[in-house]
Simulated scan of single mutants.
Amino acid sequence: MHCQTCGDATSPAFDECQRCGTRHGQPAVLPGVPTYAVRGLGLAAGVAVGATAVLFTLSALFPLVGVRLARSAAEQLDRDVLLGAVLAEVLVTLPFIVAMLVAATLVVIWTWRVRKNLDAFGAAPTQSAAWAIAGWLVPIANFVVPVRVVAEVARFSLWRRRVPGLVVLWWSAWLVFSIGERVVAKMEEGRYDRLTEFPRNDEEFATYVDFYQEALLPRLVPAVACLVAAASFVVLVRRISAAQQDRLARAVPAWPGWPNGQPGWPAPGAPAPVPGASAPGTGGPSPTSPQVPPGVGGTIGA
């Protein structure tokens, strides 16, 4: 006898598969429970997260450009050059903000979908699907809940007895980035407020050169943390998405009467498949009954 989830041989000495934890006789996907495709969404989320990390790193390295502009302003005693430096940094930061909003939206939707799929896998997570969304948005809770949701998704999707180390790496780096970026921004704001608003001599212009020189090193800490968090999260998203999609494909056979051989409602005039019955042209029973397609009416479940 083989496990319907991972295909490993099962032993009557245990009540569940020793590889994936599926109970004997339980289908890979429970009949009648909606499931959601995650591979394409996971790819889009990964690209958006990667782009966000790259753009943040570029904005963090802006002091290298700021020092040049500040020195040029000091040589020419031209305040307009300093104003140009401020505008240039704004132009560098805007793409990061847009990418971050897109990435955040895709990550929240992806988290909700992979968590909802656990219900169809017969898992027993402690975090509800609602927390897959609210956990990112509720203050204080967003420091704890998202990692708990993703940790459970990773364990049940990747057949791990413990939380994968990649989850710990991702969330640790994310906290360093999230907190560090706020601390650095607050420090820079205080230092910038102490600068002379309208510099007139070499000494006052030199303070702007010092400001950009001292800003670079603190910015590198959240920048490196951002790259580590993004890289580890992208790997997690790809592994979880691939594992869930493979499980969905393994569980649902291509019954005759489904349009294009895909799971969904039977084609008009075609008989609905009977759970446990053999499909025509096959020699054995189907491992699972057809799944009910996701309902229409929401952006996340669309």
Rank of each mutant, 00 (worst) to 15 (best):
L77N: 09
T196P: 15
V252L: 13
R115I: 06
R23A: 13
V274I: 15
T196N: 13
R68A: 13
V65D: 03
L83I: 09
A104F: 14
T126K: 12
H24K: 12
A99I: 07
A130N: 13
P256F: 10
V114E: 10
T10S: 08
Y36D: 03
S241N: 06
D202V: 13
L43Q: 13
T126P: 00
P34R: 00
G50A: 06
L61Y: 06
A9T: 14
V235I: 14
P146W: 00
A28E: 09
R238D: 07
L64A: 09
E75W: 05
A123P: 03
P34D: 02
R68S: 14
F121P: 01
P218F: 07
N142G: 03
R247W: 10
T105D: 04
R161T: 10
T93C: 11
V237Y: 01
M1Q: 08
A70H: 03
E197S: 12
V54M: 06
V67L: 12
L82Q: 07
A277L: 10
V47A: 15
L58Q: 04
A279I: 05
G25C: 07
R191L: 12
S286K: 07
W255A: 07
R162E: 11
F56K: 02
G135M: 03
C6T: 01
S289R: 08
W110T: 14
P266I: 07
R113V: 03
A134K: 14
P285I: 08
S278E: 13
L248T: 06
T22S: 15
T111F: 04
C6A: 08
Q26V: 11
P95R: 02
R148S: 10
R113Y: 01
G261L: 09
S59Q: 12
L64I: 14
W112A: 05
A243D: 02
I179T: 09
F233W: 12
T288D: 12
P294W: 09
A45Y: 10
L69D: 04
W171E: 04
A123Q: 01
G84T: 02
E203V: 15
V184R: 11
V67D: 03
L166M: 09
A60R: 00
W131A: 05
P263A: 12
R23V: 11
L236P: 01
A53S: 13
G135A: 04
C20I: 03
D202Q: 14
I300V: 08
F121T: 12
V147W: 00
G25S: 09
